[in-house]
Simulated assay, not measured.
Amino acid sequence: MKKILVIGSFTMDLVALTPRAPMEGETIIGTSFQQFTGGKGANQAVAAARLGADVTMFGKLGRDSFGEAHIETLKREGVNYEYILFAENESSGVGHITLEANGNNRIIVIPGTNHKVTPEDVENIEVQIKNSDIIMLQLEIPFDTVYKSIELAHKHNKTIILNPAPAVKLKEEYVKLVDYIVPNETEAAILTGIEVNTIETARKAGRKLLDLGCKNVIITLGSKGVLLINDNEEIFKESFKVKPVDTTAAGDSFIGAFAYSLSHGVEHAKALEYACAVGAITVTKMGAQPSLPNFSEVEKFIKERQIVKVN
């Protein structure tokens, strides 16, 4: 089994459940409030680890109760956290999530220590990058730090998975070094200038990203499914039909599961189907990391839906 290194973010998700999101200037009464460990980097690390992957997490936390909670979570989930840094007099990242009764969400992220992860910090873990096989990245840490991570991962011939979220235009010279870029519909639209709301428009956006030099493009289309495109294949997988409770971390669980599949040498079609199953399970439960399924949950889902197993 190949080793996964996640370089990314931590946030403490503060979730307000409400019948609907308030309009501008409006106050409404919410249903409940909960607190969960999250952040795209940490979510993807935990998602892969719960399935049985060998995962190391790198990022930066504050010396506060939120930071302590993240370390306890990683410890419990079996994620290697020994390289995580702590910033003095800085707060850990926070995510404010308004979750509607239909499962849709609106998220505001206050980066905190996530924006204190520097290119020099990444250079200091070059040995860990060299000793890993798959490097997973997102955009909740500074762009220069992400670019440095891509440089070092490419230097050591590692498989690079980039989740371009929150989406911004990326430098083309770094896109060319990425093995898998995994945006959702909104992110793909920002990256390409093509509005993505159908399989056909996703195909056009995917082809444009390939033209920029990325080796594989995976566009997640929510309830419609997922599309993978490269120079040799095009694969579309429909989503599994479930009743959504909370869509938070659906994309993170998909990416973590896809990386887990790659770490076992699984072909793309099976890896996509497995990741879709993991994403479907995730949206049926509340919270980011609490909703991420473990191996046995996925096995049960697979058996019920008669999906081909990963391993």
Rank of each mutant, 00 (worst) to 15 (best):
S9E: 09
E100H: 05
A101V: 13
A257P: 05
L262N: 08
F254E: 03
T98W: 03
A257S: 13
H70D: 08
M1V: 11
I199H: 10
L162P: 05
F240Y: 13
G59A: 07
E233S: 14
G8R: 10
K75C: 09
N232M: 10
H96C: 14
E195G: 05
V168T: 15
E273W: 01
I97Q: 06
I199Y: 05
V175S: 02
K270P: 01
L14S: 08
A42R: 01
D13N: 12
M136K: 00
V6C: 12
G279R: 02
K75Y: 09
E233N: 12
E238V: 12
A249C: 10
G41S: 04
P164M: 15
T11L: 05
A271L: 11
S149M: 03
E100I: 09
T159D: 12
H154F: 08
A259V: 03
T37Y: 02
K171S: 02
I84S: 01
L14Q: 14
K243W: 01
H154L: 07
G52E: 02
D179V: 10
D179Y: 06
A249D: 10
N102L: 07
R50C: 04
Y83F: 14
R106M: 10
K224A: 08
E26M: 10
Q128W: 13
L17Y: 12
V175N: 00
G62V: 12
E72T: 13
N114H: 09
M12K: 05
E233R: 04
E173H: 01
N124K: 12
G59Q: 04
V6G: 05
P164Y: 02
F58G: 04
G93M: 01
N216R: 02
P19I: 04
T18F: 01
A250V: 11
A49F: 01
K169L: 02
D246E: 14
A249S: 15
K158W: 06
F33V: 07
T118C: 06
E90H: 14
T11N: 15
E126V: 15
N230G: 06
K176Y: 03
A250P: 03
N232A: 14
D231H: 15
L139T: 06
N216M: 09
G8E: 11
F10S: 11
E299S: 14
T98L: 15
F58L: 04
I181F: 00
Y260K: 02
F66V: 08
I28M: 11
E120Y: 02
L74P: 06
